[in-house]
Amino acid sequence: MAQTTLKQKLGTTAAAAASVVLCAAFLLPVAWMVATSLKSTSEIFAIPPTWSFEPTLEHYQRFAGQARIVSRYINTIIIAIGSSALSVIVGSMCGYALARLRLRGAGVIATLILVSRAIPPIALVVPMYLVFRPLGLLDKHITLIITYTSFLIPYVVWLSRGFFIALPTALEDAALVDGCSRLGAYFRIILPTALPGLAATMIFCIILAWNELLFALILTNREAVTIPVSLAGLAADTEQGALWGPLTAIGTLTVLPIIVFALFVQKYLVTGLAAGATSGATN
């Protein structure tokens, strides 16, 4: 008996060590990005590369107090959260129907929704521009929120469909017997039960929306421009070149909020997805 525990302990320690090493390997490029953002330009271009350096905030100061960057930050937050929330609410209803309700052609509908993600964004953005412009909808937060749902909803439908299949049926049956309508039962009983899974889905949606570039580039000019557009400008600077310092600095600033958010909801991240992933492909 004691031998097994020892063996188990050893196994756990080995697994822990290995996962820390692997995690570090995946994080190394990001760590490099953060380190580079804190180096002076001459240290960035040292040959051979340096390991220790005098940290400086000069590259961050470039953005501090730039009204444009701050407002674009706020735009990005509004648009990412808005589009993700809308997608999760709407998409999860669909996912529920496809998973639980008797629906003619559910499989075909699910496949079609999934495949709509394969349309090249370039084929969507130009016609969208042509429609939105005469309607006066360019450069509005709501426009980006709505258009982002076009690529987020399929994602939500596909994942949430999995969660609902895994959910026990007893709860909603009880609600239905109590005289609730399906819709009432859904919002009162089912949605709260699936909340952790939906929270995880929402994190993925936020990440996708947070980094979206092409729609933001074409559909905004001034008021609703997002951070990825600023980054694209920095990376394609035709005067100074892509300056490594500023680029890594704003890159770090962009990653930070999501990391904080992810650590905050890490509990949901694994338990939430669990149900969805296991049964996602079983039906």
């Binding site: 994080l27 990001v30 947070w210 980094n211 570039l213 999501i258 991240l269």
Partner: peptide, 9 residues
């Protein structure tokens, strides 16, 4: 989750 978060550009 972090590698996914870094903006593609």
């Amino acid at each position: 989750i972090i590698p996914m978060v870094v903006t593609p550009v």
